[in-house]
Design a protein around this nucleic acid. Structure first.
Lengths: 243, 243
DNA sequence: ATAAACTGTGTCCGTCGGATACAGTGTACT
DNA sequence: AGTACACTGTATCCGACGGACACAGTTTAT
């Protein structure tokens, strides 16, 4: 009663390819194509990843790639799976679920920063690979035994992943937006408000305060701490007769 | 020392267009073009928004649109600004900062669900319009007077917006992924794990538990409550001598 | 040796965003 | 009133994109 047509992307992500027996030796590899795609996306963004450019980088015609991949969708799926990498082993993180999840979210954030295009490719309806599922497995494993219900565990994982993704997206935007701007977003907002303080009074006051505080801002860690504080409250509430 | 070239998109978003004095009357309006783009994106997704299709819908040649817009980037910016709509008035929400922010995030989520493509267009380096900035203003205004520092206020707003965006993205993926699947993501994960329970034990157990719980799951509200709980803790900590 | 399977290539198609040149139209100034 | 000019919408063209298809060359199983 489930999907019985696993689609080509699914097969490429989960099955090891059956080696053909006859015909000329392939000059390329799925792994090599995927690697070229990841490198290109890292350097010039996802929009630069075209069949032409990948093929040219591999010294091959564009259409040769279609001997290995059904189309670009599958290529992006493979690139995503490769760039996600193996999920971090959280067993070495001591201190229970909270440090584990903190570490998990930070690692996820780092991955999104290293490969900004992952933010786009890990959204929407898509084929999910073993690496991506492995990340979820790690977060869920850290929460088993906390007394949370199944839906709550998945919601915590989704909330943390969403936060990591959103913060990485914001960081990427700030890095690209202006040339050498470190805090691109607040600067951009400040420039917009200039002369319109009466229209955005709270924002103007907050940006003023921000400028005088001077302290550095780690938005990822801030939100992470808030979320985990909230989760801690829920876990405590789920154990009325505390240890 | 800031950007002195506000770009065409900036001008289109913030300035009212100067009416020309000579020449034939324009058959179109910026607002009409924008409306057509929003409608098309709502119905068939952002990818369906091409100059050709918009022009055809308006009974005009593709190139006629370029008399009103410099390019597609500006069109998307205008569509985004229009679809964001006026920020909600939170003055009518009683009960202090928390109910206000809860309402704010829910409204934002609803907007992202109504126009799923907003998730894509409100990310990355872009031109920000008055509506979008107005949303931020509302959230910041709700937090002024709580004792939070400027950076913290902005971080709270960013965290909440990120959560709303991430949950809307997930909801959109679930709606499109399968035909009539309500809980697309968990179903998809369950199908993947089928036969691989030893590789994803925690996930398998959690999905089993989820299936037996039966309760409905509101991921948006769950994460929202966690985040706001965490913010409440921080606000309480910022007021050592409590009221 | 021969047939079958497999590889990479060349060509073609429709669609995309956009540049450019051009003809028609309406207003402002002489 | 006449004319110059600003402004409109259109037609044509371009390069790049993803992809379909037919074809020639290469290797292996029979």
């Amino acid at each position: 009663m489930a999907s019985q047509a696993p689609s080509d992307a699914h097969r490429l992500l989960w099955d090891s390819p059956a080696a053909p027996r006859r015909g000329p030796k392939p000059t390329l590899t799925l792994a090599a194509i995927t690697r070229a795609g990841v490198a290109l996306a890292d350097e010039e963004g996802l929009a630069a990843v075209t069949m032409q450019r990948i093929a040219a980088g591999l010294g091959v015609t564009k259409m040769a790639l279609y001997r290995y991949l059904p189309g670009k969708v599958e290529l992006v799926a493979l690139m995503t799976e490769a760039a996600m990498g193996d999920p971090p082993g959280l067993d070495t993180v001591a201190g229970g679920w909270r440090p584990k999840l903190h570490e998990w979210a930070q690692r996820l954030f780092e991955g999104f920063v290293r490969h900004p295009w992952l933010v786009d490719t890990t959204a929407g309806p898509r084929a999910i690979g073993p690496h991506e599922l492995g990340w979820t497995e790690q977060a869920v494993a850290a929460l088993i035994g906390t007394g949370l219900r199944g839906a709550e565990i998945l919601d915590v994982a989704a909330t943390l992943a969403g936060h990591a993704k959103a913060m990485a997206q914001q960081a990427a935007a700030a890095a690209v937006g202006d040339d050498t701007a470190e805090e691109g977003l607040t600067d951009a907002m400040g420039a917009l408000i200039q002369g319109r303080e009466d229209q955005f009074p709270a924002l103007a006051a907050t940006l003023d305060a921000l400028a005088q505080e001077g302290g550095q801002d780690d938005a990822l860690d801030f939100g992470l701490t808030r979320i985990l504080d909230g989760v801690e409250l829920l876990i405590a509430a789920r154990r009325p007769a505390d240890q």
